[in-house]
Design a protein around this nucleic acid. Structure first.
Lengths: 261, 261
DNA sequence: TCGAAAATACCACCAAGTTGGTATTGTTTG
DNA sequence: CAAACAATACCAACTTGGTGGTATTTTCGA
């Protein structure tokens, strides 16, 4: 497999002066090197849909899938999106570093992520404001192997430079889109039950969100600083209130909710 | 809940002379009685997509969902479809009688069936030929409760009469659609692996099909007359050959395959 | 302020999936 | 024919989900 130019790529990526130039560099490199098969630059917005600023996806079906599903539903369960609004101002990770413990067997993975054909991702995110962040993603398609340790290292060194330059370029307020009031994952679950029944409590909705993101009861407990037994109790109460009996249905309700409005 | 007319409905259903008249009777009754919220008449065809002859679904979203998903993917995993091409010439069942043991927690249930809002179904099927069958389905939406024992009993008595009359009406060859060569579930799994790798054996594909239909390892073993341990071995081999590691992914591959072609 | 609900925690049990291993018997195919 | 593979079977271990129960503390609204 030809990996020549894996460093040249990132090196050159640093020398751009506009979004258009960045796009040119990316498409040039993606054609002559196997370093990455997909490159996307996304504006993440807390509580509402992301905006794709740049998307280099050769496969047409995959590109369509990306705009159809990821932009509507998938992003909410994307580990990179979740990390984007965490504490750190800047983050750069390989997917495996931040994916929940059951990510690969989660409903999200099976229904959305697996369809992209991606086997690995490098993602970097820089906060532009309290509710907006810029995300750069490099993807490996099946058959090209995962990113290696040295590739990750180099990405972690250069991606902040790239994203900081982009931040400067995009600081024009024209580029910062309007906010809508679409509810986030937790709010969705809180408002989900039928009017007659009592809805999920804040905590229960938090746990529902973690579960659909692909966390096991144990992992969710660790993250919230509570026991996995407690998580199981919440699970039971969540299922009862929503009149369901499995994780699969919990995911199904989310998709219905998002589609419905 | 008003269940008056539950018998009148089926009684009147028997007195039709054409598809159009049947449709009129159904829509009349569905509006003044809660006996069934959805009534569909489908032409099942082995190995290819079903044809909806009549569909009384009040909810517009549900109706759209039905044509979008059920007609393309869902039917393959529909317990009634599976039973339709079994040994019996005629069958009439409540869903719970023929659903696989893990149906309610299956990926199919969560992704397709749950979205319909149905909580129960009565279905009757009559074989028109070796590769074609006629299916009548009555559905209960959430909030209307399941069909009761006496309703099922009456359905089992009257549905053969209705379907036999329909068979006579539809025997006109114009109504029997062309066959295509779309692969069935088992064939799909057999042809699924990448060209470079060896595909699933017949037996493995059979088991893959049973699993996505919602059978547990034990249930699949019982059905095939082999041990559940053997089913587990096949599972392992299936996962290895398809380079996956969970049931969720097995389902995902099917959906991809069907969408792709 | 009193009571209900929420949040926390722990225990036990069962079903099921996932992952290892070994072994026997046919069948197919190069 | 020999090697490879399919199909069968059994065992063991582990993880997780789902369900049942009980109990304590906190929070918040009527």
């Amino acid at each position: 497999m030809d990996k020549s130019g894996e460093y040249d790529f990132l090196n050159d990526l640093v020398r751009f002066a506009s979004l258009a130039e960045l796009e040119r560099i990316i498409s040039e490199y993606c054609e002559k090197s196997f370093y990455a098969q997909t490159v996307t630059l996304i504006s993440f917005q807390r509580d509402t849909k992301p905006i794709t600023l740049l998307s280099h996806i050769l496969d047409r079906d995959l590109a369509e899938f990306f705009t159809t599903y990821y932009a509507r539903i998938g992003f909410m369960l994307d580990p990179f999106y979740i990390v984007a609004f965490g504490e750190a101002e800047f983050t750069a990770h390989q997917l495996r570093e931040i994916a929940p413990d059951k990510f690969k067997t989660s409903e999200y993975y099976a229904q959305y992520y697996a369809k992209t054909g991606l086997v690995d991702e490098l993602g970097a995110t820089i906060r532009l404001g309290p509710r907006i962040a810029l995300h750069l993603s490099l993807g490996r398609l099946g058959g090209h192997g995962r990113f290696r340790a040295n590739e990750l290292r180099y990405f972690k060194q250069l991606s902040p430079i790239i994203l900081n330059r982009l931040k400067a370029i995009l600081k024009d307020p024209v580029d910062v889109p309007e906010m809508s009031n679409a509810p986030d994952l937790i709010e969705r679950y809180q408002n989900m039950s039928e009017p007659s029944r009592s809805g999920l409590s804040r905590r229960e909705a938090e746990i529902a969100a973690l579960i659909v993101q692909g966390h096991s009861s144990r992992a969710a407990g660790l993250q919230l600083g509570i026991s996995d037994q407690t998580v199981k109790v919440h699970r039971r109460n969540i299922y009862r209130k929503l009149q369901i009996s499995s994780q699969n249905e919990l995911f199904s309700l989310l998709v219905q909710d998002i589609r419905g409005g």
